[in-house]
C-alpha cells in the first residue's frame, strides 16, 4: 500500500490542521485510521477508510462507500433502538470518512484487565451489554465484531458504549444472531479466562430483554457445538 492512500484527505487535513496541527492518527486498523478532530465545536473522532490498492479501484470504491454508509446508518439505527453508541456528527462520503462523537473512557478489555473490576462491576457490565445486544438483535442489527475492545466504559458514568459498527449488517436470522453471541463468548473466554462469568450475565440479560431469545439461544447452542463457520462438506 502506498503512503498516498493512507494520508488524510483534504477536508480532514484542514480540520486536523485547524485543531492542533498534528496529522498523526490516534489508531489504525485494517480498514481505517482514526483521528481526533474538532468539528463545529464538537470533539469528534474521524474514522477514515483508506483505499486498498490490491483491489480493483472501482470495486474498492464501491465496497468502501457501502461499508461507510452501512456503518453510519447502523450507528444511527442503534441509537434509535436505545443502544448507547456514539452519535454520528458528519459523514463525508467523498473522503470515506465518518465523524462521530468522541467517547471519553477506556475499552472494556482494559477495564477487565486492570484488576480493579469487582463482581458487582461485572454484573453491571453484563447486564448493560446483554440488554444492548438484545436490542440490536431485536431491531435486526448484527454487530459483527462484538469483542471487549469494541465495548467502551465511559468515564463520566461508567456505562458501556458499543463502538465500531464497521462490520455490522442487517439480519433477523437466528443463525447470524447466534454467531454474533458466539463471537462475543469467544472473545471473553480468550481474552479474560478468569472472568467468563461476565458472559453468563450477558446471556441472562439477553434472555430477559430479547423477545426472540428462544430461537436465538437455541441456534447459539448449535453454533457453539459446531463453531462459527458452517460445514460446507456434502
Amino acid at each position: 500500500m502506498t503512503t498516498e492512500t493512507c494520508a488524510p484527505t483534504p477536508a480532514l487535513l484542514a480540520l486536523l490542521r485547524a485543531c492542533d496541527g498534528s496529522i498523526e492518527p490516534r489508531s489504525q486498523g485494517a480498514e481505517a485510521r482514526v483521528y481526533d478532530v474538532q468539528l463545529s465545536g464538537v470533539e469528534c473522532v474521524a474514522k477514515q477508510r483508506f483505499a486498498k490498492t490490491y483491489r480493483l479501484r472501482e470495486l474498492d470504491e464501491r465496497l468502501t462507500r457501502s461499508r461507510l454508509s452501512a456503518e453510519a446508518r447502523t450507528m444511527v439505527r442503534a441509537r434509535k433502538l436505545g443502544v448507547l453508541a456514539p452519535h454520528v456528527v458528519h459523514v463525508d462520503a467523498k473522503e470515506s470518512c465518518v465523524y462521530m462523537e468522541r467517547i471519553r473512557g477506556c475499552a472494556l478489555k482494559e477495564a477487565l484487565r486492570s484488576g480493579e473490576t469487582t463482581r458487582e462491576d461485572l454484573r453491571r457490565f453484563g447486564e448493560e451489554i446483554g440488554v444492548a445486544v438484545a436490542k440490536l438483535h431485536d431491531g435486526g442489527i448484527i454487530h459483527g465484531d462484538l469483542t471487549t475492545s469494541n465495548l467502551m466504559v465511559r468515564d463520566e458514568d461508567g456505562r458501556v458504549v458499543v463502538i465500531d459498527f464497521g462490520l455490522s449488517y442487517p439480519s433477523k436470522l437466528p443463525e447470524d444472531k447466534g454467531v454474533d453471541l458466539y463471537v462475543l463468548e469467544r472473545a471473553i473466554t480468550a481474552a479474560h479466562p478468569s472472568q467468563t462469568v461476565l458472559f453468563d450475565d450477558i446471556l441472562a440479560a439477553y434472555k430477559k430483554t430479547s423477545q426472540m431469545w428462544c430461537s436465538t439461544l437455541n441456534r447459539f447452542a448449535e453454533v457453539r457445538a459446531r463453531g462459527r463457520k458452517r460445514s460446507m462438506v456434502g
Partner: peptide, 12 residues
C-alpha cells in the same frame, strides 16, 4: 445530537 446524526447520514 439526534438531529445532527440525521443530518449527517442524509447523503448515505
Amino acid at each position: 445530537d439526534a438531529v445532527l446524526s440525521r443530518m449527517a447520514i442524509r447523503d448515505v
